[in-house]
Simulated scan of single mutants.
Amino acid sequence: MRRHRSRLTDAAVLAALLAGAVVTLAPFVLSVATAAKTTRQFAATPVLSPPAPPTAENVVALFGRDYDFVTPIAVTAQVVLVVLAGQLLFSVLAAYAFARLEFPGRDALFWLYLATLMVPQVVTIIPLYLMMTDAGLRNTFWALVLPYLFGSPYAIFLLREHFRAIPQDLLDAARLDGAGTVRILRHVVVPASRPILVTLAVITVVTHWNNFLWPLVITSGRTWQVMTTATAGLQTQYNGNWPIVMAATTVSVVPLIVLFLVFQRRIVRSITITGFR
């Protein structure tokens, strides 16, 4: 009887997981299938029908002169790389200071900074826009990256908790060998934190690869247009050509899938490290 109940429970859990997987993956499958259809096929067949035959002409056209999707990809890649470098550098420095250095008001300052996680992004959009406009940075590359360059509350919190778990004896041994704070960070703390840093890097890349609201507000025209705003422009400018729009979304997702497949082992390892101490 117990074995029968256990099997029923396993079957129910499996069915729930399969349903969740279908709901999660269905939009991506539909996006790829629509991108592989011609405009005539999309208009003449049901939305859920597979392309017959599949075509790559939408992806080819996306990178042609009519749509010029290369520039948004290049701008997005530049923004992500600069923000990633800044996030890793300044988040490591701030997290180590909050975790290991002693100074007055350290904990109060940390929790006050962490409380900004509760503030929605839309609340800060107008003040940031006014600041960038007054500084003459509106519709520039630096306007896209400066609000995110110097770390984030989530990143600092994540790294601080990990740095606090590093044995103090290890840091003391490095100091006895004559290492200062910078050398300890470079040769002890960072190497011991590679899995969590890789996870933070992946989260940062995904977040800013998909960032939409701030680029939409602070930029205009096509010079500093990122992929999300370029795709939104396709939806409004070419509203009847959904295969092109789906080709753009598919192209946008592919680098993130590759990134996850490359670093999935380190991400799982970081979850194991942070979850079982």
Results as ranks from 00 to 15, higher is better:
107 D>P: 00
29 V>S: 01
116 T>D: 03
108 A>C: 03
275 G>P: 00
276 F>Y: 13
174 A>F: 08
32 V>F: 10
131 M>K: 06
190 V>D: 02
141 F>E: 00
46 P>C: 02
181 T>P: 02
79 V>N: 07
69 F>V: 06
167 P>F: 03
258 V>N: 03
80 V>S: 08
215 P>S: 07
47 V>M: 05
119 V>T: 14
10 D>V: 11
159 L>Y: 00
199 T>R: 06
15 A>D: 07
150 F>I: 09
52 A>N: 11
270 S>R: 02
235 Q>F: 14
133 T>R: 15
123 V>L: 13
185 L>A: 08
230 A>I: 10
241 N>T: 10
28 F>A: 11
208 H>L: 03
270 S>C: 06
229 T>Y: 07
261 L>T: 09
22 V>I: 15
62 L>K: 00
36 A>N: 06
67 Y>D: 04
106 R>H: 02
234 L>R: 11
21 A>T: 09
255 P>Y: 09
226 V>L: 10
129 Y>Q: 11
26 A>E: 00
188 V>C: 04
46 P>T: 03
103 F>P: 01
54 P>W: 04
157 F>G: 01
28 F>R: 04
105 G>P: 00
92 V>N: 04
222 R>H: 04
276 F>W: 03
186 R>E: 12
227 M>L: 15
24 T>H: 01
81 L>G: 14
148 Y>G: 06
83 V>C: 08
50 P>M: 09
61 A>N: 14
136 G>T: 12
46 P>G: 05
214 W>Q: 09
260 F>H: 08
255 P>I: 13
103 F>N: 01
271 I>P: 00
152 S>A: 14
116 T>N: 04
66 D>A: 14
104 P>I: 02
267 I>M: 10
132 M>S: 05
155 A>M: 05
87 Q>W: 10
171 L>P: 02
188 V>I: 13
63 F>R: 09
142 W>L: 15
6 S>D: 14
137 L>Q: 06
211 N>F: 12
256 L>G: 11
258 V>H: 02
50 P>T: 07
235 Q>C: 03
175 R>C: 07
87 Q>V: 15
16 A>N: 02
260 F>T: 07
89 L>R: 07
166 I>C: 02
56 A>W: 11
222 R>W: 01
36 A>D: 02
258 V>W: 03
171 L>I: 15
106 R>T: 01
209 W>R: 05
208 H>Q: 08
224 W>E: 00
127 P>W: 07
219 T>G: 03
40 R>A: 13
149 L>W: 05
207 T>S: 14
129 Y>T: 13
20 G>H: 08
87 Q>A: 11
44 A>G: 06
277 R>S: 07
206 V>L: 06
